[in-house]
Amino acid sequence: MASVSATPPRAASRRGSSLGDKVFALVCQAAGIFVLILLGALIIELLIAGLPAFRAFGLAFVTSTDWDPVKELFGAGVSIYGTIVTAILAIILAVPLAFGVAFFLTELAPPWMRRPVGTAVELLAAVPSIIYGMWGFFVIAPAFAQHVQPFIIDTFGELPLIGFLFQGPPFGTGLFTAAFILAIMVLPFIAATMRDVFEQVPPVYKESAYGLGATNWEVMKGVVIPYTRISVVGGIMLGLGRALGETMAVTFVIGNANRISTSLFGPGNTIASLVALEFGESEIGSLKLASLLALGFILFVLSFVVLATSRYLLRSRLKV
């Protein structure tokens, strides 16, 4: 009897709570869909805004090396070249360092040292881009101009086949300096991913190898790297994606010249640096502004492909 009389209020409260549940679930889902729309709108807006440039120059916009505001001739060739060269060079410089840091932090360092050193390396990722720009411009570029570049030019400039990469006057700024700064900026991202995936290797695997008398390096080479190599490549792609779109630091040190120089010490530009520099001088509705937005669209496509690949490779790590 008592249970029967208690039924109505419970039913009422359940109806109320199911309404609250529905509303809350809907709000959460709406927020999720909002994020989808945000990215979709970003792509579509950039494409629409850049359309006049694609229409005026056709597909040649991507390959053309013109950038002549007076004659209204614009092309993305130089900045795409600069973007890809600096990003890949940055990765070549950063990966060995990041691997060293991750190996040191997971296997070699004494336990008390791991957290402070790991935090310090992660703080490199927190330093704002503009600070890297200033540091690069006022500290690294002069040091490169006076010491590093003359040395490299004298040593490698005369070599056959690859010598042309290291010729020319040592300005201090240029593609190589930009890549160097980018390498420092992506180092913490790659190192953190590597460290995380190295730590996920089951200890039993490593212990069995150590039990057979393997050295640290043999365990790394024979057990850890084969176990984690897909995620490691994913981490490297993540760094590459970051390097492609980095703006302020590159703008300070790349030299900002619209030409393809065969020497790595020559000046150049990247999509992001060109947009940052030229945007303020473009009139609303001009073909130049449309070209800059079209560049933005190209940069988006580039980084989307790289970041999506990275995420695909890292998915196994995300699921764990």
Binding site: I33, L36, L46, G241, G296, F304, R311
Partner: peptide, 30 residues
Amino acid sequence: LGNAVRFVSDILLSAPSILIGLFVYQILVL
């Protein structure tokens, strides 16, 4: 849908911030 949202959010996390500036310029400044 959840996987799509997660993917897009991760892309936004690493997307070049200059593009977000261009996007907001298009939808709010102009």
